[in-house]
Amino acid sequence: MVKKLNGKISTAFLIILSLFLLLFGQKNIKAVDQFRVSVEGFFVPILEVTAFPIRSVDAAFEWAGRLVSAFNENEHLREENIRLRKSMIVASQVVIDNERLKKLLNIREGKVTIIASSRIVADTGSPFFKSTLINSGTEDGLKKDQAVANEYGVIGRTINVGASSARVLFVTDINSRVPVKFSKNGVNMILAGDNSSYPLLNFLPDKSDVKVGDVILTSGQGKLFPPDLLIGHVIKIMDGRVKVKLAANLYRLNYVSILNYEIADLSVQHKQKINLEKKKKH
């Protein structure tokens, strides 16, 4: 009888504690965040070990798939190689022109560096939260709110960073907002996640000419994501809602790159310019 009562009291206490955590544990409380990253950091090596069989099976399937499509892919790559050689000549001319024009206009651009390439170690296992755990943290130079991308395009940003692990919020998460633009005309918008595979384009100007297939890039506004990173393309326009298909496949991520973006400090450049002018006068 006493044991039963004790059980009921402890259940009631833990239910109240869970409710308390649910209501107040999400308000960016430092102790809660610290607890989260400590537990994540502890479990990351365990998750890496337990993921080994899954990785092996996945690698075996990928190898078999490549073997089956090797002949067709070879033909396709030959044709693509010829096409790319032609475009490379044109592109190199464009790069030279671009550099020359930037020098003429005295354009100062930010510096983008890859801080770390990290392995994906855990998923959410839920349709309502779109994030992932990676095996790099402050020890590798990571900080909160850094852009994360792979060779195909933008994936998300870091939200909680521990010593050897970090959580990356995907651009598809309902809490994600990324400043973006159309590549064709530079019109600025916001890419808003809605927990579906295809995030939405918000704050679209009324008379903007949107078509399926339009390419979306990061705008660089907000100083978090470097400008001109590929996001994806418009896949669906329905009842004024514009959906975007991401260039990066979030379901097949193995490694991601964490980017550091240092914007050009115009005040420093301005001072340098004044100093130079003074020196010239002297």
């Binding site: 402890s10 869970s18 999400q26």
Partner: peptide, 30 residues
Amino acid sequence: MPPIAVFLIGILQDILSGGPLGMTALFLLI
């Protein structure tokens, strides 16, 4: 499977899945 064990399992799942802390713990305790 005492309540405290259920609570810890729920909290661990919430942390590793990146969900709101306490949600799974609450459901499993109920």
